[in-house]
């Protein structure tokens, strides 16, 4: 079986897919990749289903050695990846030989990189998902972040594309834009117009108390009307921006708690969650209010990019090894729309 042996796990590496949905009513957060866009492209590049799990590698310091052959892809943050000591560029797939060493040496852009393998990481699905929720030890690799010397098995892949597939450069995010779009609500009426304008026109800094659960921001203090920051607890969502009594906003991220009692001044639009995911403590960000329509358009256009990429890559020929009797054959397969069965019969001579 093909495996990955972790030499250095880095500060925070976990297995994440697109999340565990349907259990928030029981207090279980969805978890899942912080940057779902990068995760899906990592999967598309190696021919996996888009919601397959990848390693979410936070910041530099991760290194590992492969045992066996497989295909990998790296997307998301540029963490200065090297393969056997040679620099490689993310947002493409690579063929891996037995003994290859992969390292992430230096943060260049963004914060979280995704490492996918053809066939996926072979960990059990817990409540329908491979995502790790470390606070309750659910899912992923034994419910926890990876440690040095962990060995993760790789699932069976049904094809090898011996060609490096690359994402067109105009699709690759640069993570230089730190303007995050929001929709006001659900409790923006707790804040005066003046406070909302302050929120939308100020710059906030991501503090060190920021993780997969939420980002604590620091910047101009926001006061609710009559100081009423507490609400009767209601549902909390990915991207919701709570304002506790100290007036410093908190953006809820993938491992967010499912209910909360602080007023939410606005909610980040789905399409900009990946942008948030790639911010590091110390980065500045600001917020821009957009219409419902714009939010939906942005989401649909992101989905459209993913659909198109998937279609295009599916069209590429796949290379299989087939063993018939004692002989191996290399077979190139290209997808076609229709299979026309050929009649086998007697042909009179």
């Amino acid at each position: 079986m093909t495996k990955l042996i972790i030499k250095s796990a880095g500060p925070f590496t976990t297995i994440q897919d697109l999340g565990r949905y349907g259990y928030q009513k029981y207090g279980i957060p969805p978890s899942g990749a912080m940057d779902g866009f990068a995760l899906q492209i990592a999967n598309i590049l190696v021919g996996n289903k888009r919601n397959e799990a990848a390693l979410e590698i936070t910041s530099a310091g991760f290194s590992a050695i492969f045992q066996g052959e497989c295909e990998i892809a790296i997307t998301g943050a540029d963490l200065g990846a090297t393969l056997n000591g040679k620099a490689i560029t993310p947002w493409q797939s690579f063929h891996i030989q037995n003994g290859d060493v992969l390292k992430f040496e230096k943060v260049k852009t963004g914060c979280r990189a995704y490492l996918s393998v053809g066939g996926g990481w072979d960990v059990p699905k817990i409540l329908g998902s491979k995502s790790t929720y470390t606070r309750a030890n659910i899912g992923g690799y034994h419910g926890r972040k990876l440690k040095n010397a962990d060995v993760i098995e790789i699932g069976k892949s049904y094809h090898f594309a011996f060609r490096n597939v690359k994402i067109p450069s105009h699709i690759v995010p640069t993570y230089s834009n730190h303007k995050v779009r929001v929709i006001l609500g659900p409790e923006s009426n707790r804040f005066s117009k003046k406070e909302i304008n302050k929120f939308l026109s100020s710059s906030y800094r991501l503090t060190g108390q920021s993780d997969r659960m939420g980002y604590r921001l620091s910047g101009p203090t926001l006061r609710a009307k009559r100081g009423k920051h507490d609400i009767l607890s209601n549902g909390v969502l990915l991207g919701a921006i709570q304002v506790p009594p100290d007036g410093q906003p908190i953006v809820m991220m993938s491992d967010h708690q499912t209910v909360g009692g602080y007023a939410k001044i606005s909610t980040v639009i789905s399409a900009d969650i990946p942008l948030l995911a790639q911010l590091k403590p110390g980065d500045n960000l600001s917020f821009k209010h957009v219409s419902f329509e714009e939010a939906r358009k942005a989401y649909l256009s992101m989905q459209n990019i993913l659909d198109l990429l998937e279609k295009q890559i599916r069209k590429e020929p796949k290379v299989f090894f087939v063993k018939i009797g004692e002989k191996f054959y290399k077979v190139k397969v290209r997808a076609c729309s229709k299979i026309v069965p050929k009649e086998i019969g007697f042909s009179p001579r």
Partner: peptide, 10 residues
């Protein structure tokens, strides 16, 4: 019904 982001209703 109150809009809650672009993918939920409160």
């Amino acid at each position: 019904c109150v809009p809650y982001g672009d993918s939920a209703v409160l």
